[in-house]
Each structure stands twice: as C-alpha cells, then as structure tokens.
Amino acid sequence: MADEPQMIVGNEFTQVIIRKIYTRNGERVEIVSPKLKRSIQLDPLALESLTWQDIEVFTGFLAKPFGE
C-alpha cells in the first residue's frame, strides 16, 4: 500500500512533517522533525492518549527537551 500524502506544520521555531503510514501492525501516524532528524510512529491508542493529557504535560515536555 502506498503511503498517504504528507502534511507540513510549522511556525517560526520549527517544522514537522506528518503522514499516515502502513506497518505490519496496522496504520500509524509518523511525525518527523527534519531539523532534529528525529521521528516517531504513533498508533491510534497512543494518539488518543494525547487527548487525555492536560496542557501542563506538554509544557513539561518543552521545559526539559529530550529528558535532559
């Protein structure tokens, strides 16, 4: 199966590429940071779990990037 078209989301600080991919274990959303050369693949449950979080969780991610 061919991968879906990608979407680019960015602002003055960064840019990410988002696309749906197909794996042996089903569909995933892949998020790629070209600047950092990092990526992650999230399944539907992982994506849904983002909606369970308060905004403070994401603020914490930004306070200590990469777990430093």
Rank of each mutant, 00 (worst) to 15 (best):
R28C: 10
D3H: 07
E30K: 06
F61P: 01
I8C: 04
L50K: 07
Q41L: 04
V29P: 12
E4R: 10
P34R: 05
L50V: 07
R24L: 08
F58D: 08
D3K: 09
V16C: 10
P65K: 01
Q6W: 06
K20N: 07
L45S: 13
Q6E: 12
I17T: 14
E30Q: 15
G60E: 14
V57N: 04
I17Q: 13
F13N: 15
P65A: 09
S39Q: 15
T59D: 12
K35P: 01
G26S: 11
R38V: 14
Y22T: 11
L50A: 09
N25Q: 12
L47P: 02
R28H: 15
I21G: 02
A2N: 13
P65E: 07
I8D: 03
Q41P: 02
G10P: 02
Y22R: 12
T59Y: 10
I21F: 03
M7D: 06
S49I: 03
D3I: 01
I8W: 01
I40M: 14
Y22Q: 09
L47I: 14
A46E: 15
R38M: 15
E48T: 08
I55H: 09
L50F: 15
R24M: 03
K64W: 02
I40F: 12
Q6P: 00
E4N: 07
Q41E: 15
R28E: 11
P5I: 00
P5K: 00
